[in-house]
């Protein structure tokens, strides 16, 4: 395996803390907030993260595949979650300690509950509005009611973090190391 070449492109309006662990070819879009101690490894192919995402402490995003791993907009990766899926849509929530295997593509408006673990042998795609919850990873479809409120909350969340994180953390800029 060839050595991984680091190449970080961080949008000027993104908030990426100094103490994050980045490896490989990573692009971070505007408004995305990456908390300290988050881990993003582009081992196989590059990772492209869209706008207004939140990646919390200890969240791990890994691309093991050759293709580009695309993460859409307004996703929330909570503390200790681990996502290796080749593509993630928009407005998804991956809750605390949830794990998504590299065979699972995530649609949009999905919610993966705390400690849920999706692991399949063949490639699958989570439909839009899929909700996984509970200790047995039960699956149901969200009606979509309250979607506006969810969007609104996510916008406020990003705004708040963009204001307050830089006051207590050094930020990383998108320079080439």
């Amino acid at each position: 395996m060839p050595p991984i070449r680091d190449k970080f492109i961080i949008h000027s309006k993104a908030v990426v803390c100094q103490d994050v662990d980045l490896k490989g070819d990573i692009t971070i879009g505007p408004g995305t907030v990456v908390h300290p101690k988050a881990i993003i490894y582009a081992i196989g192919g590059p990772i492209v993260i869209g706008s207004n995402n939140i990646i919390e402490e200890g969240a791990t995003i890994v691309n093991r595949r050759k293709e580009v791993m695309r993460i859409g907009d307004e996703n929330l990766f909570e503390i200790g979650s681990r996502v290796e899926s080749p593509s993630v849509g928009d407005q998804n929530t991956v809750s605390t300690k949830a794990r998504v295997h590299h065979t699972v593509r995530i649609g949009s408006h999905c919610s993966i509950g705390p400690k849920c673990f999706i692991n399949t042998s063949e490639d699958i795609k989570l439909d839009d509005f899929t909700v996984l919850y509970g200790p047995n990873w039960e699956e149901r479809l969200w009606s979509g009611r309250g979607q506006k409120q969810a969007e609104d909350l996510s916008t406020k969340h990003v705004e708040y973090l963009k204001e307050w994180l830089p006051k207590f953390n050094r930020l990383r800029r998108g320079e080439m190391p």
């Binding site: 919610s111 509950g113 909700v131 919850y133 509970g134 039960e138 149901r140 969200w142 009606s143 009611r145 309250g146 506006k148 409120q149 609104d152």
Partner: peptide
């Protein structure tokens, strides 16, 4: 936008589960 709307929100009101996203309209 949500801000422009009434601060109390619009009726009808629903019961909503934050965990499994069930709502009473179902």
């Amino acid at each position: 936008s949500f801000h422009q709307a009434n601060s109390m929100g619009e009726p009808p009101f629903l019961l909503y589960c934050n965990n499994c996203r069930w709502d009473s309209a179902e």
